[in-house]
Amino acid sequence: MDTSTHSPSQAPSAATPSVSLGNGESRISRAKDKVKLKAESVDVFYGDTQAIKSIDLDIFENEVLAFIGPSGCGKSTFLRCLNRMNDTIDICRVEGRITLDGKDIYAPERDVVLLRAQVGIVFQKPNPFPKSIYENIAYGPRLHGLAKRKAELDDIVESSLRRAGLWEEVKDRLDKPGTGLSGGQQQRLCIARTVAVSPDVILMDEPCSALDPIATAKVEQLIDELSESYTIVMVTHNMQQAARVADRTAFFHMGDLVEVDSTDNIFTNPQDQRTHDYITGRFG
């Protein structure tokens, strides 16, 4: 994959639509074959307050889609709906329809365990378990019984760590606690932990907000690499980041999905005034 096309200098500046279109189109056309996740008029309520208002959105296979918007706009809430992490919040209620490969994920017969094995999630703050690095990665495969033998498990651990670009850094201390790693390493460990289950979709909730710029760059590079084989949906508060890594970008505002388009279009030729105000820094 050609990562150089996503250099930050290109993204938010006032380039003409025609120039940027070519770039974005190429990636979208590659990704656009198949709808992976589909949201149809989704509403989310916390108690009596409505956090998400009737959102319709298609997410395509193997694309990187970024959610941006001011804090409290509902982008994280919506992200967590996609693998039903909101189930853990008692007062949260989801209405509407979200389908994965055409099947409703909120259907009563749908098993949330299976869903989350298909749609993994990486959180804002790195949250490695207080166990060894090896056990952190092995946890998911063990949980789901994915490895019959120790060798198989070793293999999964190694390949996942390699995928997360962490193998070289930790291969000599797999039995050391995961909490002893640096923040950026911890976050990549969490990504490797998610990858170890081989999900179809990886959700990332502001994965770099707790990291320094160097660690952020590494994680962004990793996202780029992962997008070859995974569908990635990420929330970010950082517009440059969206511009650097995302194929498409969705702008949320006060519970509404204002617009979604190729990243270049969003940053150079937004259709909605609110999007325009946000990306030019009037608010947020």
């Binding site: 299976l114 298909q118 789901h144 994915l146 081989s198």
Partner: peptide
Amino acid sequence: SIEQRREHRLTTIEKSL
């Protein structure tokens, strides 16, 4: 491959569910 793994994974998980 990733696809094989995913297939394998789905069936394994379903069996143990």
